[in-house]
Design a protein around this nucleic acid. Structure first.
Lengths: 351, 351
DNA sequence: GAAAGAACAAAAAACGTTTTCGTGTTGATA
DNA sequence: TATCAACACGAAAACGTTTTTTGTTCTTTC
């Protein structure tokens, strides 16, 4: 058990000054070839590695990125982290992951913990509580202190910073449109409570698609699910009271659960009812039938967020201007939807 | 955009020394009530927060834990991170997550990146490549440098350190036993290639259970899957050539895929064939039928690993002695297995 | 009225780097 | 021989803390 060796120790051992050692190791021409070699050999032998913390202090940059997400046991978020990690690592950054558990307080605590020098910048997706509370002071504070911040997926207009998002409305519109074009006449919506920004936007896309197709919105076909416990019950109630031939769910969990209930009740998928979900995770690929979904490309979103952040950190571009990158979504057609017959297509889209 | 304020700036502004400011802020009795109050008010007004990096350098501890896992888009590993994060946060530690992508080289690079002062200790699950290569020098090196290391799930005897694991053999034994006790006579095994420690141990458990029940092992009923692409094909071949009434798979993905193929071929689950998998993830809960599984309790495993590491870091207990904690697994019975009739149970178990 | 002791505050050292500047020694040039 | 540049190296400052040491000033006590 040998402690890590430092410049000072090498200097003492070799009877030269610390600065000489430092220069020798970084191959400076200021030190003679002999001493340089001697020092390098010694350093190599003792496996010298500069101490990151000391360098961080000196340079006033840590090469760490702080990421705060609502949960980690979640396909989409872990995919985003994968994307962040890839880009960050390739540029020599490490990623510190913190979880807000959808709690406003934890989000604030985590930010305070990290903002005192531990990291160079933030990548964050807002917690549900923060979204509901609409209190974004903690973000504006760190921005004011000069720390770059990138928001992704769950964002807000109230904070001016770089953002990586998908066009949730548009994607939902397209998903519902797929159902409409394949012949569905009555499409149910399974969504979340309103304050989750993405849920609201996806609902909006659903509305737009229906309107564009000349249908009216039937509120009885819309189910809002508060928590996972009531998910099953709410969906069953929908099946009890309404009839429909298409279902659009704002995540794959809702969609798969709805499919199971439909199958229990003897409906054939997609012949009797078509299903499409949001988020292309493992469930969609493994369910029976496999689920058609909107892929959000979390990896690309994470990569884009990391690139924007690092760009700010390395001082490329104007530090004051912010941009919002919209990641392209794509619809993945699987067994839960019918091939669209390419008829009955309205001439102009609202997009 | 105001830079973060430092002790030095406060000192200059208030015309006292840096040490006085430091002491005043930490409420030292060495500084008079007047100055103390004045300084504290000033500090509060400018929202002074001590710089973590400076403190880390001073204390030679970062309060960061380095976690290296093979992948993150994976239910089990993200659950483990959740457990680590909980414990770490409660003790004031942050978690730096790095991904090895199952690559030996990345594992080494990540460790080198973190070992130079960025963290106080490691929590790692071995990459497949490392397991195959059996080269564990990088672990022994950091241990020799006095940095605590905890391995979890995918571990090795060749490194002497704290470990958090499940008894894979035992858990597999119990899973297969459940099939046997519910009347299965011919049980297929869907597993991974040999060098993955946990895969080998689970296979061993399968063997033990069969032997204990008086059955012989039929190699034709064992499928070894190398990568996810060939998964489907291999399983189909099994169905083509063999007949069986039970399937034990070493993860839920294999199990669910096998169930789908079985259903395609008209088998009723669990009446014709029973299925049980390893790893209680989202797939098991959402598949149809829902899958009986062995829950590995990743959260507990992560929490245990973090506790052991922090224990070492805070110098409780002997720094030299290592312990291996075995997390209890539990079998979750769902729709894919029959209730066991509580007969035909052999008297003594080999466990 | 001098010694002792509080009470307060400043200075300095330390953590491990990097970098700027200064200095003494060469050898060459005028 | 005086001047100067090149060379090789060391000293010191800086990053922002905490802690130990040192140094004042003011009370107290005999």
């Amino acid at each position: 058990m040998k402690r890590k060796i430092t410049l000072k120790q090498i200097a003492r051992e070799l009877d030269v000054s610390i600065s000489t050692v430092s220069k020798a190791i970084r191959n400076s021409k200021e030190v003679s070839p002999d001493t340089r070699e001697k020092i390098q050999a010694f350093a190599k032998f003792y496996n010298y590695r500069p101490n990151n913390i000391a360098i961080s202090l000196k340079n006033r940059r840590t090469k760490n990125i702080g990421v705060i997400i609502p949960e980690i046991v979640h396909h989409f978020f872990s995919t985003v982290i994968l994307g962040i990690e890839r880009v960050a690592n390739s540029q020599g950054y490490n990623v510190i992951v913190c979880l807000s558990d959808e709690s406003f307080d934890k989000e604030v605590i985590n930010m305070e913990m990290l903002a005192n020098g531990s990291i160079d910048g933030f990548i964050i997706s807002l917690s549900k509580e923060t979204l509901a509370k609409e209190d974004f002071n903690h973000f504006n504070e760190v921005i004011n202190e000069g720390m770059p911040l990138v928001l992704f997926d769950r964002v807000t207009d109230k904070v001016y910073c770089d953002k990586a998002i998908v066009d949730d409305t548009m994607a939902a519109y397209e998903a519902v449109n797929l159902l409409l074009e394949s012949g569905c006449k009555q499409i149910a919506l399974i969504t979340t409570i309103d304050y989750i920004s993405v849920g609201r936007l996806r609902t909006l896309g659903y509305h737009k698609a229906l309107k564009n197709f000349g249908f009216t919105i039937d509120p009885k076909l819309v189910v809002k699910i508060e928590d996972l416990e009531t998910c099953d019950k709410k969906i069953r109630e929908l099946f009890d009271s309404e009839t429909f031939d298409g279902v659009f769910a704002v995540n794959e969990f809702f969609a798969v659960n709805a499919m199971k209930i439909a199958q229990d009740r003897g409906f054939k998928i997609p012949d009797d009812i078509s299903f499409i979900g949001f988020t292309d995770g493992i469930l969609s690929k493994c369910s029976s039938p496999t689920l058609s979904t909107v892929a959000q490309h979390g990896f690309e979103m994470g990569a884009a967020a990391a690139k924007m952040l690092i760009n700010k950190l390395e001082n490329n571009g104007h530090p004051k201007t912010c941009c919002t990158q919209t990641i392209q979504t794509s619809i993945i057609e699987r067994e839960s939807t019918k091939r669209k017959p390419a008829i009955a297509k309205p001439e102009k889209h609202i997009y």
